[in-house]
Design a protein around this nucleic acid. Structure first.
Lengths: 350, 350
DNA sequence: TTGTACGCGTTATCAA
DNA sequence: TTGATAACGCGTACAA
């Protein structure tokens, strides 16, 4: 058992720091090696699963590490060829309740597999492109897009950097981008059918902003069900996915037409519409059915109790992580689209 | 202008990769240097603000970089002594609406100053401690604690690693931890006074779980106002900060006593209580005043319109970032506690 | 103004 | 089983 002899230049460095200890130096494998009387490599091996190292020595190293508060520097480890274990999540707008819930699940699911999510919120940012550029300087394991409105050019740029991209909520046709998307049309078609079966005839729709594929797909689904019954929507207004905009859109609709059914592109707007109906003294659901889309947690709050199309968030997040793992396991695999089935949740507003 | 001669060992490496191009290698400064016919350090300087480099050369380097899709590797840059620009945010439970809103603002504020937030959600995680341990392997610029319930031992461990810690929502007494906290007692005292002035006498309170200092401080504030009026609360029940628990707690209160004033430890529970009151046919605010705490975005939704104590989220987030910057500028500075003033928001439930 | 050389902290390889 | 050593990609002090 020879005592390990530290390099002289190392000592020189330490003395420099001693003279001017400006910022505290992190404890390194070297420090642990010296404390435990072993080589740097031994320390590294002590922390590597399945590496050859004498048990007694490993013990000694771990003790010293614990005492010094050492932990392997993930930056250095990531640099040396492996993965960084960092995953960026780009969110279109965190003020959107559904997006926030998805992000929450995503964060949980990623944490669970030891991937560390870096969040970028497009909603609160003036220069999204610049922020993305900065984050892409990290060698990310992957990028998750949670957004209906992001510039697809950014996604393409990522694939150029050979960073796997998973798009959630919007299908990007690119050979190297995996997608998770719910069957929007199917969901709202079922919702419309529910109300048709209930005898409703005068349908209104509150759409999202232009350019959001999910909103238009949901509208299409409704149209299809209505067309099959020989009907068409009486009036359509658009909001921006917020509760307030749903409230305002509903008021405009109530001015324009007498509805007995109102479908909304998402739950938040449906909740706003519900408030508008109540404020106007409209009896929901006796005189008006309101159905949302997504099934955010607020939909089941007492006092709201919204009938809606469930866009199952946990399945969603799990699917994203599943695609992510598959892509990491085989970077060359063909791109995949996972469609998530929706289902109606019957509560008190239909 | 001599052409730069790449090292021979570099070529050898490239050939290795050519033989087995398993995973795509990231474009490095070296690659750009070769493409632009300059040295690697010239490339580095081309991307460093205020570094000496011939303008024409800088142009050439940037062109080559753009063509190759190069961006400096943040991991390597961080390793070499500077900061990593990574900031971890530990959230007690992202399912809590207020926490989520704070996190959203925090993410925005950090993004704006080019710090990249890594999220860890204690709510969705079985082993918080282990997750924190993994994340601490990154040389974080700082750690932000957004949580009422986190093990303070973890915070202490961070300071041992010389990672600045900012605690939000709970004051941790530690010489190296900065804190941001709202004046809880002041806020709920004002709320209670408002209802006293309105003539209310039979106060109920819905508290948060035991061990959350914010909840007990808010309760103290109410008690103080009542005591000054020679009163005491009629009944107190506890929830877990969720809407559902507020609903249930309110139902228990209504069973136990006839109240004309109900203060809640947070908005979510107040919203639940509002639902319970309405379900029971209690007229709010004619027969019962309900006041929440925080002023989450849902509080101003039509159909809720909750009177509450505003715990100003954006100021909160800005303060956290401010303390963070100050701490990074001077790691040795004494720890700081920033108290945030609350104010009443009078809406429709008082 | 430019290139060389070194260090950041780690893991992987290789020879002992 | 172990220790020395070579990458990993970058910034930068230093010498030219």
């Amino acid at each position: 058992m020879t005592k390990y002899d530290p390099k002289p230049d190392r000592d020189a460095v330490d003395q420099d720091k001693l003279i001017a200890p400006k910022r505290h130096r992190r404890v390194t494998a070297q420090d642990v090696a010296e404390a435990a009387g072993v080589s740097r490599s031994a320390v590294s091996r002590a922390f590597t699963e399945g590496a050859y190292l004498d048990e007694e020595k490993r013990e000694r190293v771990r003790d010293a590490a614990l005492k010094l508060g050492y932990r392997p520097n993930a930056l250095a480890a990531g640099l040396q060829g492996g993965r960084s274990h960092l995953v960026a999540i780009f969110v279109g707008d965190m003020r959107n309740a559904y997006d926030t819930e998805v992000v929450t699940r995503l964060v949980g699911a990623l944490n669970a597999i030891q991937k560390w999510p870096i969040l970028i919120d497009g909603g609160g940012l003036s220069s999204v492109k610049e922020a993305m550029g900065e984050v892409l300087r990290y060698p990310l394991d992957a990028l998750i897009l949670r957004s209906g409105s992001m510039d697809p050019a950014i996604a393409r740029e990522c694939t150029k950097l050979h960073i796997p991209v998973i798009s959630s909520g919007r299908v990007l046709n690119h050979p190297q981008i995996d997608n998770v998307c719910c069957r929007n049309a199917q969901g709202s078609q079922a919702a419309a059918q529910l109300l048709l079966d209930r005898g409703r005839q005068n349908f209104g729709y509150i759409a999202g902003p232009l350019g959001y594929s999910s909103s238009s797909a949901r509208q299409d689904g409704m149209m299809r069900a209505l067309a099959a019954a020989g009907l068409a929507p009486v009036a359509i207004e658009a909001g921006d996915f917020t509760v307030e905009s749903g409230f305002a859109a509903a008021e405009r609709l109530f001015e324009r037409a007498r509805l007995d059914a109102l479908l909304c592109a998402n739950d938040a707007m449906a909740i706003g519409a519900l408030g508008a109906a109540r404020a106007r003294g409209i009896d929901v659901p006796a005189d008006l059915s309101i159905v949302g889309f997504d099934d955010i947690s607020m939909a089941r709050w007492p006092g709201i109790n919204l009938t809606t199309v469930c866009n199952p968030i946990d399945i969603y997040a799990d699917k994203v992580v599943e695609l992510l793992s598959a892509r990491l396991a085989d970077p060359e695999k063909p791109s995949d689209v996972a469609y998530i089935d929706t289902h109606l949740v019957l509560r008190g507003t239909h």
